[in-house]
């Protein structure tokens, strides 16, 4: 018995010997490839559809108010037909910056500790625990912030509590696992020989981290921070619950603030007509900011690759 066609045995067209079914296989392969290709186009088609639908719905209002007046207008008053999103842009930027200022140092320090200082097994376990933070739904973050942080701020300062500060603290905690996780991976990717090189010269662990490991992992850490910015800009529910949502440009950490996302979520439920189109216009602005951030990520990633190539000593021994 043999599993092959008899006769001139490996022509495709030869009749098979009963149990061997290889006829038409090549044709099947082509069909499979087509189908897989179509599936693979889903993501990019979805992206195109999202862009098309959001823009189609949002552009009319941008045209009516004028793109510049829409983006730089400081008054958002649907009842008066005034749609300027600058307060929301300022709000998004403010909470994002404040969140990063608080979150990044802790997140990167946490990554350094887990990757470089903690005993390896403990590091892996603790990292998994930190990543659990990213599994907590954003409504839960918002709610815990609403019931603990907001009253706390109110008590300390006498202000209402719903504020840039409250929103950015919640966001800082939310983005920490993202930044920690990406930074951790890039720290782990730094070759052990770098650290050995410093150790061989009598350097301490901290010197190795500060002078060799952190600089080598820099592009990965930056990528993690950019990812964090994206999460901050895009986060909706948690911010909505603690930010106060007044559509005015925040003047201090204690000012109530409305972000692009929370503005949409807040009013979408009841908006109609021009008001609804203006909300989609807001979405267009948000979308453009995220797209710009994406381009920045790509730029950093390509730069990182170049740096990585140059930085790595060819002998892989860090000159020890």
């Amino acid at each position: 018995m043999s599993y092959r066609k008899e006769g001139s045995p490996f022509w495709r067209t030869t009749v098979s010997s009963g149990r061997v079914r290889s006829q038409g296989r090549t044709a099947n392969e082509r069909v499979v490839e087509r189908v897989l290709f179509c599936c693979a186009l889903t993501a990019v088609s979805a992206l195109a559809l999202i862009t098309a639908f959001i823009f189609a719905e949002g552009m009319p209002e941008l045209g009516r108010t004028g793109p510049a007046r829409f983006v730089f207008g400081t008054t958002w008053s649907p009842s008066r037909g005034m749609f300027g999103v600058l307060p929301m842009i300022a709000g998004s930027v403010a909470v994002t910056l404040a969140a990063l200022l608080m979150g990044v140092p802790v997140a990167v320090a946490c990554a350094v500790f887990l990757a470089e200082m903690a005993p390896p097994r403990a590091g892996v376990l603790l990292k998994a625990l930190v990543e659990l933070l990213s599994a907590v739904p954003s409504v839960v973050y918002g709610f815990v912030g609403l019931t603990t942080l907001v009253p706390l701020i109110r008590e300390w300062t006498g202000a209402p509590g719903f504020s840039v500060l409250a929103a950015s603290v919640v966001l800082a905690i939310m983005v920490m696992p993202t930044i920690t996780s990406v930074s951790y991976e890039s720290l782990k990717a730094v070759p052990g020989s770098y650290r050995d090189g410093v150790a061989a010269l009598g350097g301490t662990r901290w010197q190795a981290i500060r002078m060799v490991v952190l600089p080598a992992a820099r592009s990965g850490i930056v990528a993690g921070i950019i990812l964090g910015i994206g999460r901050c800009l895009g986060e909706t529910m948690a911010v909505l619950m603690v930010a106060g949502n007044a559509p005015v440009i925040p003047t201090s950490l204690l000012s109530p603030v409305r972000t692009l996302t929370s503005g949409i979520a807040l009013e979408m439920g009841y908006a109609s007509g021009r008001h609804r189109e203006a909300l989609f216009g807001t979405a267009v602005v948000l979308f453009a900011m995220i797209a710009a951030l994406n381009l920045l990520t790509r730029y950093v990633a390509s730069k990182g690759a170049v740096f990585g190539g140059r930085r790595r000593p060819r002998d892989g021994s860090a000159g020890a």
Binding site: S45, I54, G234, A283
Partner: peptide, 18 residues
């Protein structure tokens, strides 16, 4: 295809909702 997937990953959930 990769560009599509990576960009989609960065789209905020509220945009998906809209």
């Amino acid at each position: 295809i990769r560009f599509g997937a990576e960009s989609l990953a960065g789209v905020p959930s509220i945009i998906f909702g809209l």
